[in-house]
Design a binder for these strands. Structure first.
Lengths: 188, 188
DNA sequence: GAATTCATGTAACTTGTTACATGATTTA
DNA sequence: TAAATCATGTAACAAGTTACATGAATTC
């Protein structure tokens, strides 16, 4: 859906190749957005054919040539229009495979569910660690690009990550306690 | 991805037609899963061709005929295998269009972001109301099907919804306060 | 000399969305 | 009698995933 806007947004920092964009996706936006390289290259072509970015081929610093993309003025306009459009994102769907499992867990029973929840709790705690380490990468980006102005917005979006993970942890712990209070014990 | 398992799961309650499944999706699983009718009908056909469900055509109580689907033993096995497979759901992606916007908001500035956040906060509060009202529907389902055993799991998954929305509300409020503390005011 | 990283892409596929068509029955 | 609900579907498209191919440069 909005991969194109993610790409346009990152290109406002500086011109980049598809490969660079993939990298930045991985260690900045990764908590709330992701994309395959194949998808990124396809999308960049579409953006170029609609005039929102332009590209030039540059000799690669290491290895093959790079196709470096720059955002155009029409691209910036597109981006701003999307950012200000409050209708588009208001009914985004919240698909959560794990919750679907919990909902259908009568098919495996409370003990097995407890096992799933305990495993999940571990995952959430790892997520928290990963988020903390990706925070330290922000400092790195601060040096690589000139992003004084961006820092504020990065902080606010990363902070959402903490709220999110903490609420997951609290819910999982609460649910495990609830099952225990009903006399069930883990299958692990 | 796991629409098929959602369908299999609901069919463990009782045999149903595509239309019924769509309805139940809408007012039970809706908070963390959704699907279009066209997708549901397509998926049901696939499930039938792989032997996980069977169907019979019944005269409709009102209007056209119904094709009523029942889960088979192989369908139940599939479902249970998926429920217990902790690898599959562990790296589900968390795409969040709104967070992408926040992350890229240097392109519109803090005042505009504040406006977006305020609008979001309203949406979150509406989400909370909707979740409360869908809770009351659970009671309705309890009567329609024989789902004593299922109630426990419904409660746990619905409870996740509350944790989720509350954390969204807290984050939005905190972020608005943060921007205010920096001397910015809303564009609204 | 082997593995990893840099760098770009194609092809085939799955999943999800949008728009449309049909026609009966029930409710306002 | 008009609108909503019941009920099933097709077609075209958009978005996302998986698998694969290529080949140079760097690091171990």
């Amino acid at each position: 859906m909005s991969l194109r806007f993610g790409l346009l947004g990152l290109l406002t920092y500086c011109p980049m190749a598809g490969y660079d964009l993939k990298k930045i996706f991985e260690d900045s936006v990764n908590y709330f957005w992701s994309a395959q390289t194949s998808q990124i290259y396809r999308e960049l072509k579409l953006l170029e054919s609609s005039g929102h970015v332009t590209s030039v081929v540059e000799p690669g610093s290491a290895g093959p040539n790079k196709r470096v993309y720059s955002i155009t003025e029409s691209g910036r306009q597109e981006l701003r229009a999307w950012l200000l459009d409050t209708e588009a994102d208001i009914q985004e769907d919240n698909k959560n495979e794990f919750l679907l499992k919990v909902f259908l867990s009568s098919n495996i029973g409370p003990q097995e569910l407890m096992g799933l929840l305990e495993k999940r709790l571990e995952k959430y705690k790892k997520d928290l660690d990963r988020l903390l380490s990706s925070q330290s990468k922000v400092a790195e980006y601060k040096d690589r690009f000139d992003v004084e102005r961006e820092l504020l917005f990065w902080k606010i979006s990363m902070n959402r990550g903490f709220h999110d993970i903490q609420s997951h942890i609290r819910w999982a712990e609460e649910s495990i306690e609830f099952l225990k209070s009903l006399g069930f014990s883990s299958s692990q």
